[in-house]
Amino acid sequence: MSTTPPETATSSSTPPQTSTTGTTTTTTTTLLPNDTYPFPREFFFPPFFTRQTNLTTHHAQLTKWSTLLLSYCRHHRLFRVSLSPDVLPFHNPRINRRLALADIKSLIDFLRKDGRAEYVPLGSGSTKKDGSGSRGGGGAGGGEDGGEAFIYWRTPEEWGSLIESWVEETAQRGSVLTVYELREGEGTRGTEIWGMDGDVLVKALGTVVKRGKAQIFQSGEDSLGVKFF
């Protein structure tokens, strides 16, 4: 997103070609933190982290980033990412390149158009019932660090259907389940539902409710219950 003009004003003494080469292209010594995700090749392509000026190129860039982010989150089962240029996968320490915050937001906006991402509302992160609470503070730091976004490598609708089929398979239609036991109970252990982000889970259940196949209600002080029909 930087609008800095090309360095036409650099000192006339041109840097020797070799000095630019050694540092940027073949930095094989910098290791990424342990990460099992097999990053695609473009992740090691320095311009991938600079917003491309050519519109067609930029579109290709966004498409690649979308694929990368979705598959990265799927790999690590991340339901939300922190929109910060300093964290994986927006940062590649090995080539010392970062995606600027503005570019991260363009990426999220691009994903939102496909229903594959959503901003986590500021201040709502940790207060929501059963929220996974990875956002500690209130809305204070939100503006600067860019906040968080849900990344839907499965959309809430897809999660909803998945949960519904699990309920069907385990013959629990008609019984009341708490959101807590869906997320952490023995029943879902070993299924994809287990360990889901609380907010995403509630959204997922919401889509089932919208289809008239379930009902959500308050059960107890700070927990939700759900009943599938």
């Binding site: 930087s2 800095t4 090309p6 360095e7 650099t10 840097p15 630019t20 540092t23 940027t24 090749r41 473009e42 090691f44 392509f45 320095p46 311009p47 991938f48 982290f49 600079t50 491309q52 000026t53 190129t57 860039q61 010392n96 390149r97 970062r98």
Partner: peptide
Amino acid sequence: WVDKQGIEWEYWSPGFMLEG
């Protein structure tokens, strides 16, 4: 493709993304 995060702007051949 342009990389603006180096000392000088670098113009990369997309072919290197694949060989990379």
